Simulated scan of single mutants.
Amino acid sequence: MYPKQVEEGAAPLRAQSPPATGFPMNGGGGYYQAGGATAALAVQAKAPVAAWSTGLCNCFDDCGNCCVTCLCPCITFGQIAEIIDRGSTSCGTSGALYALIMLLTGCQCVFSCFYRAKMRAQYGLRESPCADCCVHCFCECCALCQEYRELKKRGFDMKLGWHANMERQGRTAATMPPQMHPGMTR
């Protein structure tokens, strides 16, 4: 029950490290590989977690967007997805895909909850008031409105899209490829 006492002159007892299995082990609270915790857990533990700038049901902050989202959520989703994807997908493409999933399966909340998780990871936001999938399954319109308001409060003009926002902020070099100079001439 108690650890053995180390006698004078005897070599100290070594603490046994957990086996290198890659599976979670009790006691350490993390995954063990090659005798140490993985870097992912170390980074995850240090990540700052901020609160959302508005609550889930603060629709009175932006009544216009709330009405648009209730009538046609694919528009709001498309605007959010374009900003979160940093312009790699357009508002129209994301909105059309959202509408197609909604019409064919009715499970658009599963698609949109992935974007909420991606947005939380980008901005270090808490998973609140509950899990992302629960928020989108039970309060889809409120979740989309909250995400829209969060991006708006972070300085994005949601009607402009990603590229126009970057131009407005003077960061075109970060999103555009470098200009190619003509070949060598003599």
Results as ranks from 00 to 15, higher is better:
A96G: 08
S17Y: 10
T21L: 07
C145Q: 02
Y2A: 10
Q44E: 11
P73L: 08
T185H: 10
S90L: 06
A81C: 12
Q33V: 15
L71W: 13
L13K: 07
A37N: 08
Q108D: 05
Y2L: 13
C74A: 07
Y115S: 01
M184R: 14
A37W: 03
Y32L: 13
Q122T: 06
S112I: 06
F114G: 10
F111A: 07
F77S: 01
A96P: 06
C67G: 09
R171D: 15
Y31P: 06
P24N: 09
G87M: 14
G27C: 14
M158V: 06
H136L: 02
G161Q: 03
L13E: 10
S112T: 09
H136A: 06
G78K: 01
I75T: 06
P73D: 01
A164D: 12
V68N: 09
T69W: 08
A47M: 03
R171C: 13
C67N: 11
A34G: 15
F138S: 02
D132W: 01
A47G: 06
L100G: 11
C57H: 08
R154W: 01
G170E: 13
N165L: 09
G30R: 04
V43A: 00
T105A: 10
R116S: 04
T69Y: 01
I84V: 13
R116E: 01
D157L: 02
G87E: 12
A96M: 04
Q122L: 10
S94I: 00
Q44R: 06
G36D: 13
Q5P: 05
C59M: 10
M184K: 14
Q79C: 15
W52Y: 11
G106S: 11
F114H: 12
S90M: 12
Y98F: 15
